Simulated scan of single mutants.
Amino acid sequence: MPVVFKQCDTKLSRPDQRIISNNFTTRLYVSPPDVPSDCKEVFTMDVSDKAGTVNHETINDSGSSTIELTDKSEMGSSTNEGQTPMYRFGSIINYPDASAIFGHFAHYVPSIEEWVTGKSQFYTLAKECSIELYTDEDGFNPGLIKVDGIALSKFQYTLSYMKYFNKKFGYFIVPITGYGLHTIENGGNYVMYVVCKNVNGINDAAGYLASGFNKRK
């Protein structure tokens, strides 16, 4: 995962903020910023759930900190203490039985400041794949999002809203059929993942960060 250097005891002018749902997510792994070896700074992060409950978490300097998602439907994290890379340990989870987990994958979870805009290409298998799309308020109108040149409003999809950091985000899950390369276009800021079930077997899965991410400015 990308690790960004910072000087000891310096703060970000704009916080590092990330959101994710527990769909396809077992837990998140969090790493601290890269600092000089003699730095004794303690890194912390506020982790909020859908109900607005905030937990103040300490980030282990070994990079082994985790945020469990099997006991919450979603989360938003925020810190001013540096860019804190986050990785999703993904799975197919048969809720409400959170113990029924199969298929595992891992990928980077970009911060909101790293989200992209415009057109992205992505790849899916022939069936049982979905895109998982998170957008800002400028990007969650399904009539203005295009998948393979067709308005998302023409597809089957689920849309819910996530409210964090005094902002509203759109969260889509869209089943995609057709083996090969696809495109998505969105005039807002977004991040997108692809998740496929039954890959090489009924207990296997695959998932990846499909939209890529920008370098935080």
Rank of each mutant, 00 (worst) to 15 (best):
Y29F: 13
N141D: 15
I184Q: 01
V35F: 04
F102N: 07
L125A: 06
T124A: 08
G149R: 12
G212E: 08
E74Q: 15
F43G: 04
Y164I: 00
S153K: 12
G118T: 03
M1P: 10
Y164F: 14
V116E: 01
S73T: 15
L69H: 07
L12W: 02
N214K: 15
D38F: 06
M192H: 01
A51S: 14
T26P: 00
S111N: 12
V195K: 01
N189I: 05
E185P: 00
T79N: 00
R18K: 15
I173N: 05
P175H: 08
S13I: 15
V4P: 05
L152M: 06
M45I: 10
P85S: 14
E81M: 13
G76S: 08
G201L: 11
V4F: 15
A210T: 12
Q7H: 14
I150Y: 09
E137V: 09
G139W: 00
N94R: 11
Y157N: 01
I184E: 01
I67P: 01
V116N: 02
G207D: 06
C39I: 08
I145W: 00
K50A: 09
S111Q: 02
D38I: 08
D97F: 06
G180S: 13
V42H: 02
I101A: 05
V3M: 11
A100E: 14
V116M: 03
S13W: 10
P142H: 09
L69G: 00
V191Q: 07
M192L: 12
N203I: 12
A205W: 00
G52T: 12
P175S: 15
I184K: 00
N141M: 11
I92E: 07
Y87M: 12
D9I: 03
V42A: 08
R18Q: 12
Y108M: 06
K215M: 13
S78N: 06
I150D: 15
K217H: 14
S78C: 07
T44F: 08
A51Y: 13
Y190P: 02
F24M: 08
G207R: 04
E113P: 00
V35N: 05
D136W: 05
A206Y: 07
A98G: 01
K11Q: 14
R216T: 14
G180E: 12
V116P: 01
T58N: 13
F172R: 01
Y193S: 07
K6D: 04
R18C: 13
G178T: 11
E132Y: 11
D34L: 15
T117Y: 02
L144F: 12
C196Q: 08
V47T: 09
T158A: 10
V174C: 05
G201C: 10
Y157D: 10
V47L: 01
W115D: 03
N80Y: 13
H107V: 07
G103A: 07
I20K: 04
G143C: 05
E185N: 09
T124I: 04
D204Y: 13
A98Y: 11
I20W: 03
H182N: 14
N203C: 14
A210L: 06
N200M: 14
M192E: 03
G103M: 09
Q17K: 15
L125C: 04
F172H: 02
K127G: 03
L133I: 07
Y164V: 00
V35A: 13
